[in-house]
Nucleic acid binder design. Structure first.
Lengths: 210, 210
DNA sequence: TAGATTGTTAATCGATTAACAATC
DNA sequence: TAGATTGTTAATCGATTAACAATC
């Protein structure tokens, strides 16, 4: 199963997971592609196509079992395992990530936080100690991390990414507002908050033209 | 100019703006679609198509003037005007938004912050006073806002959005991890941090299969 | 002028939607 | 069984890429 899966499908998976979680919490046990499509603003066809990239999780004449489908999609997303996370940058965004309750619930465990500012070193955020950036390499050599969160200014992002790569980190969640050059065997997902706000601004500016 | 512009194009605009800003800062004054494509990992064809949705900003045999093109795209994105912003929720994400330096630079002015927690009321974040949620309607009646940032738990997001709509807010930047129902004349752009992290997780889980 | 590069039309590719046989 | 709904193939639609005449 799961041959080539297009980016368009992958980007929709978290939405499926979120809606199925909400349905499960609401006590809904069964759902058809039609009803799920209505809720998610997708066509039933698209939902069936998407789900069938990964296998036949439904039953003809019945639909999908909510908790079962949620389980499958969670597994596909890799939420069935623990991810060891470090946060680089103990500013507001680093703090927001460290304290975001959803992450730990989904298997993302923050194991260390790094910053350059002396006043922050040794303090804790959500129970995790802030260490000095100078100790990054030594820490990672002893405590490999699966994911590094880049929550620092654009100006130091590329250098920091290169240091992380040297220390064996192969997945980065980047909040710095710049595009980073990285080796093919490193996965970088950008958040780019400004981009998202600019899209809102665009839609406001062109509100009447659709 | 600017008839129908597809979502795919709109989503790329902030990337153009970001790269052109970086080029301008680096002292580059002229660029061809080929060179810009190399930097942004897009084909020259796509860049020319995208830009020509809005007008002929280039010159044959020469390319584009960096600062001119940046100016045009900034205007298209609506960055040529001031947006009055309120932040609803003074937690970590609200704080991160209030303190994000890029926003004020691009014309987004935070005018008020709201929260329910008594201990936070009256304090300031980046010079802006935190008010009580009970005062939301009264405040907005006297001080209309262009954009509201929703930085609060999923459970109260829909109610809050409805209150904002009632008070005349027509654009929302939503950080609550849930999809909101909203009237057609309201623009809602979601950030959904978890989605982005889950996509990283997916790529890690399927690293070898591409 | 010759060379370079755009603006724009045509061709291709991929994603979405429709349709329907399979089957619960 | 009859009705409903999936899984999957075919048709459509839209986005990306290629090509090239226009022109700086």
């Amino acid at each position: 199963m799961a041959g080539y899966v297009s980016d368009a499908v992958i980007r929709r998976l978290p939405g499926y997971y979120r809606h199925l979680r909400e349905l499960e919490a609401a006590g809904v046990t069964q759902i058809s592609s039609q009803e799920l499509g209505r809720r998610m603003q997708l066509t039933p066809s698209q939902i069936r196509q998407d789900i069938n990239c990964f296998g036949g999780f439904g039953r003809q004449g019945y639909g999908y079992k909510v908790s079962e489908l949620k389980g499958h999609i969670g597994d596909i997303l890799g939420l069935d395992r623990i991810h060891r996370v470090i946060i680089v940058g103990a500013g507001n965004i680093g703090a927001a990530v460290a304290n975001y309750p959803t992450f730990s619930r989904e298997g993302f465990e923050t194991q260390a936080i790094f910053d350059v500012e002396e006043s922050k070193i040794g303090k804790t955020m959500n129970g995790v100690t802030v260490r000095h950036m100078d100790d990054l390499e030594e820490y990672l050599a002893a405590n490999p991390a699966d994911i590094a969160v880049l929550a620092l200014p654009a100006g130091v992002a590329q250098d920091t990414l290169d240091r992380l790569y040297e220390s064996g980190v192969r997945a980065v969640w980047n909040f710095a507002p710049t595009d980073l050059n990285h080796s093919d065997d490193m996965i970088v997902v950008n958040v780019h908050l400004s981009d998202s706000l600019q899209i809102l601004s665009y839609r406001m500016a062109h509100r009447d033209q659709d």
